[in-house]
Design a protein around this nucleic acid. Structure first.
Length: 262
DNA sequence: ATGGTCGAGTATCGA
């Protein structure tokens, strides 16, 4: 099973690139973030024409998350599970696709350290752990994929010195991410590759992509049973090139699942 | 050249 995650930075603006990418790569499941659409504007029929069943959670022109699947979409949930303090933003959607519990996440940016939005980011990650606890078990096949807006360690930032004390790298954010990971998830990309310089996001400004000055803030975390089947982790840099790219590249993970459970 | 970029929406904020 090939699963992708991609912050598209407006699905409306990115639709030609997304269609092209789906045709070229044909992933089985795709998690999208920052569709910037309300549900009524989500082009589900277009995806159906491409062979993907699609679900979307979006309330306005900000945020917005989706899951596309060629392997079914069962038990969808918008946002946090019942009983958890609701999120006013559309940043999480979950469904079971081909036997894998898939969560598409768009973690709050945080804006500035100490900002109200920064505390919202930390609280959001705590609530994500509660959501995982309430909806599934780490002994199941689970993937939590998306834009985490956190660089897990200094290899995941193009210039760590420049980022000291800024959002995406603080011990508070990394600690909050670690608590999610400690639920029972594995960063298979980092397990597979030791080196830095493997980034998923590049600011549009200052030619950052061409200078390879980016961050690895988009990744897929897999439960241990799923991670054991991991055979591929890759950033699709080609999708960050060319005409009207997103500022994020898609990230792909491959899992060799037993067909009996797929 | 003290800026460099997008996308929301149409003044300015968010990333």
């Amino acid at each position: 099973m090939l699963i992708g995650t991609w912050n598209v930075n407006s699905l409306k603006a990115r639709l030609p690139r997304v269609e092209e990418w789906l045709s070229d790569v044909r992933p089985d499941v795709v998690c999208l973030q920052e569709t910037k659409l309300a549900d009524k504007d989500f082009p589900a029929l277009l995806f159906a024409g491409l062979g993907y069943e699609a679900i979307h959670h979006g309330v306005n022109q900000w945020n917005g998350v989706a899951i596309l699947s060629r392997m079914g979409v069962d038990r969808p949930i918008d946002g946090f599970a019942p009983g958890i303090e609701p999120d006013p933003d559309a940043r999480l959607i979950s469904a079971t696709c081909g036997g894998v519990r898939v969560h598409s996440v768009y973690v709050p940016n945080g804006r500035e350290v100490g900002h109200e939005h920064f505390h919202y980011k930390l609280s959001w990650l705590d609530r994500l752990t509660a959501h995982l606890n309430d909806t599934t078990s780490p002994t199941d096949h689970v993937v939590v994929a998306g834009d985490w807006n956190i660089a897990p360690d200094d290899r995941d930032v193009w210039d760590p010195v420049r980022f000291v004390d800024s959002t995406h790298v603080t011990p508070e954010e990394r600690g909050a991410l670690q608590k999610v990971i400690d639920w029972g998830l594995i960063d298979t990309f980092r397990q597979r590759y030791d080196q830095g310089g493997l980034f998923s996001y590049y600011d549009y400004q200052a030619g950052r992509f061409h200078k390879r000055e980016g961050m690895r803030i988009d990744f897929l975390l897999a439960s241990e049973p799923l991670a054991r089947t991991s055979f591929l982790d890759v950033v699709d840099r080609n999708a960050r090139k060319g005409t009207k790219p997103s500022d994020h590249a898609p990230v792909l993970a491959g899992y060799a699942l037993d067909p009996a459970h797929a």
